[in-house]
Amino acid sequence: MPVFEQGYRRYSGSRARRIARWWPIARTSFRVTMRWPFYAVLVLASFPLFQKIFEVYAAGAGAALFPGARIMFGFSDGLFYDLISRETFFTVLLLTVTGAGQIAEDLRSGALQIYFGKPIRQADYVIGKLAAAVFSALLVTLAPAIVLFAACAAFAPDFSFITGNPLLPLRILGYCGLVSLSLGSLVLALSSLARSGRSVALLFAGAYFLTMLLSRVLDRLFMDWRFAAVHIGKCLDAAGRSLFVDGPNPPAPTDLSLGMIASIFFLSVLLLSRRVSNAEVVS
């Protein structure tokens, strides 16, 4: 009997257990980013960490060698705020070189068609890409913070620094997560708007530095510190300061900064879902 006259028989192929569908996307996306600019930024990003480790050593175990160090430095939350806020710049740098092309290159090469021809949801794709970007960002924020925490534990004269700061790991995690998630989602949203990673890199870095300039100009012009919230770096800085340091001079109003960060995140996710969910690629 010809095959086409046979009744429909389902082939009983074995199917493995369900896995998180975003994971292969995240893994592949992250592996693609591991080229020389990635490592170069990692090396650059390690300098603030080395400086902080030296400060901690000088104030603790090496106090005999550096008698004045304990006065200049010290074991406090501020150490971590200072480190992570300085690493924010390197996060922007890293995402510029590694995150800008994440979706743009997929749009250009038709890889979206490969992905959406498979049983994954659009959410899996976005989560996978976001996970890769956030993981990259955490390598220059959370990883140095963990190393610094270990250095503090190793060089501090006693454990009062750790026992007196039970919420410190959560604060570190919160600040790093805020920086990584907001900047990661922003670069991906911009990446979904173009088909060239280079244009997105220029757009992302340009937007970051131009808003920094704009916030300073507006601040000076109108003598109103709320304008500082135009710049996402200042917003993140203010959010970090509220988490770690109760200083009198946050760079921007905390409420406004948190609102801006939340807005940027939700707008980015909205843009991503709109750009990716209707990805009907007509070649």
């Binding site: 493995a16 896995i19 693609v32 049983p119 994954i120």
Partner: peptide, 23 residues
């Protein structure tokens, strides 16, 4: 052709199968 240009043939298939839900 719809490939990841830098991918190896086996890795490409493994990636697609992972997207299909295989460990």
């Amino acid at each position: 052709d719809r490939f990841f240009p830098e991918a190896r043939a086996g890795d490409f298939l493994v990636h697609l199968l992972r997207l299909s839900g295989y460990v």
